[in-house]
Structures are given as C-alpha cells and as structure tokens.
C-alpha cells in the first residue's frame, strides 16, 4: 500500500517537473509582462512538432535537438511579437488577449491541415527506459525532464535577477515611461522577453517528446495547468513556477489515486483555491 502512494508521489513530482517547464515560459510572459498568452499551448505544440520532425526526418534525438528548437522557438516568438501581437495590441489588454487567441486558432488549424489529427510518438531507446529505485520504477525521460526544468528555472531566475536585460524586462512591465527615460526601448524588451518565454517552450517540447505524444491538440493538455501554476506559484516567480508545478503534479497524481481518474482533477482546483485563500499573491508572489 505504501508503495502505491510512494509511486504516485514520485510520479506526480516527475510530471510536475514537466508542468513546471511549460509554466516557466508563461511566468515570464504572463507573470512578468502581463501578456495573457492564449497561444502558449499552441506554441508548445509547434515546438513539439519541430522536435518530432527533426527526430523522424533527420534522426536527431530530441535532447540533441533542444538547443536548435529552443533557439528556433525564440525566433518565432520574437517575430510573432514584432509582427502580430505587438502591432495589434498597442498596449491594450483586450487586444493582446484577442491577438494571442487568434494566433492559437491559426496555429492549431494550420497544423491540423498539415499533419492531420492523429497522435504521433517517437520511439527511442529512452522512451521506456526506467530506473529502479527499490520497489519504485522511475521513467528516465521524466527524470531528465524534471532535472533540466529545475536547471532552466535556476538559469532564468539568474538571468532576470542579475543581468541588465533581466532588470529591464522587470522594469518595463511596471513602468514603461520611466524605462524610456533611461533609454530602454520597451517594444524591444517586450519582443525579447516574449521570445525567451517561447524559447522555454521549445526546450520543454524537446524534453516532453520522448515520453509524450504529439498532436495538433496537445497544447490544450498543458495550457490551463500552466496558467494555474503561474498564479498558484506567484506571478512572475520562477521558483514559484517550479514549486507550483510540482505541487500540481503531485495533487493530480494523488487525486487520481484517491478519487479516480474522472474525479481526480478536482484536487487541482481545491489546492488552487486553498492556496489563494491563504496567500492571495501565490506561494512565492511578492506582497503588494
């Protein structure tokens, strides 16, 4: 009996690591820049298809493809902001919301037309590899995704806290005119930060692929969970995204165990409400 709980706990933590990875980019885009990025799931899907194509057509393992896909997704995000979101929005929240939603609709249907609605998977030596930890079996790709997401969270936190660009991103989100008077160009910083957030999705896509399927709808599996994690962890907090991701992963896993697959996800909402009742700014959110 104990083993079942332990297995659910570990599995939840590992899935949570993956959730955290998806939430990392969103905590930058939504938590720091306050862009409600409805295209987040769709862009994750694009990243996963890119990784899948590289594996299937070029024989490049997703882990080896990670730097290329992350850079490519950064470029795509930067372009999307410059050409679509930034232009359409002109700083209005409503317009940003519609612009990102529009991007999501276009991307989802473009990929549905190109690839059809089937789910695809890659087979690699790692897909079913497991580590035995006493009575527990740990999926190797999930352990790797977990570890890399922690590393990426640390790197992003360092970037935001210690570099001028990171400081400028935080500054521009709250006080664009003050930033202009220091010679910072807000529209550039926004495009850059959006690109970095989407670049994180590229990394997440490569780490997900060995243990997950790809389809034009795969983004919807993650997008609501990612928004929940960002708010739960504290808007714009990278440690919050990681801890929130792990918490949601464990909650989902335990909820499934206790309440069954269909009723299990209710646990996420309960934890979400409970946390916000006691800490309205989220686990790691700055007091306002």
């Amino acid at each position: 009996m104990v083993e079942i709980y332990a297995a659910a706990l570990i599995n939840g933590l590992l899935i949570g690591g993956v959730y955290a990875l998806v939430a990392l980019g969103l905590t930058l885009i939504y938590g720091v820049l306050h862009i409600v990025n409805f295209a987040h799931g769709s862009l994750l899907m694009v990243g996963m298809f890119a990784a899948w194509l590289m594996a299937e057509k070029l024989g490049v393992h997703p882990y080896a493809a990670l730097p290329v896909v992350a850079l490519g997704m950064f470029a795509l995000g930067w372009l999307l902001y410059r050409l679509v979101i930034g232009r359409v929005s002109r700083g209005e929240d409503r317009a940003i919301l519609l612009a990102t939603l529009g991007v999501a609709v276009v991307l989802d249907n473009l990929f549905l037309t190109l690839f059809g609605g089937d789910t695809r998977q890659i087979e690699s030596d790692l897909t079913f590899a497991v580590i035995e930890l006493g009575p527990l079996l740990l999926s190797v790709p999930k352990v790797i995704a977990f570890a890399v997401s922690l590393l990426l969270a640390g790197a992003l936190w360092g970037f935001m806290a210690l570099t001028d660009t990171g400081r400028a991103i935080r500054a521009v989100a709250k006080e664009p005119e003050g930033a202009r008077l220091m010679g910072i160009r807000p529209e550039r910083i926004f495009a850059l930060a959006y690109g970095i957030g989407i670049g994180c999705l590229g990394a997440a896509a490569c780490l997900l692929l060995p243990s997950f399927f790809v389809s034009p709808h795969v983004g919807s599996v993650f997008v609501l969970v990612a928004f929940t994690i960002v708010v739960l962890g504290g808007m714009g907090s990278f440690p919050g995204a990681v801890v929130g991701g792990l918490l949601i992963g464990v909650t989902e896993s335990m909820g499934g165990l206790w309440l069954g697959e269909s009723l299990g996800p209710i646990g996420i909402s309960l934890v979400f409400i409970a946390v916000l009742l006691f800490r309205p700014t989220g686990l790691f959110g700055a007091a306002r």
Partner: peptide
Amino acid sequence: VRAGLIQVPEGRKIFPNLSVRDNLLLGAY
C-alpha cells in the same frame, strides 16, 4: 539619453517592483 540629456520625471517613475540597487543600475542601462 545617449547624448546625455537625462530627465528625472514628475512622479519619479522609478521601478516599484525592483530593488534600490536594480533601479540605480538601470540608470546606466
């Protein structure tokens, strides 16, 4: 700004979510 014409604006417009050190460092952005 690059030419050296620097303004301290009305209402200060400092960055409320940043530390004092980060605010000052951004002055030299």
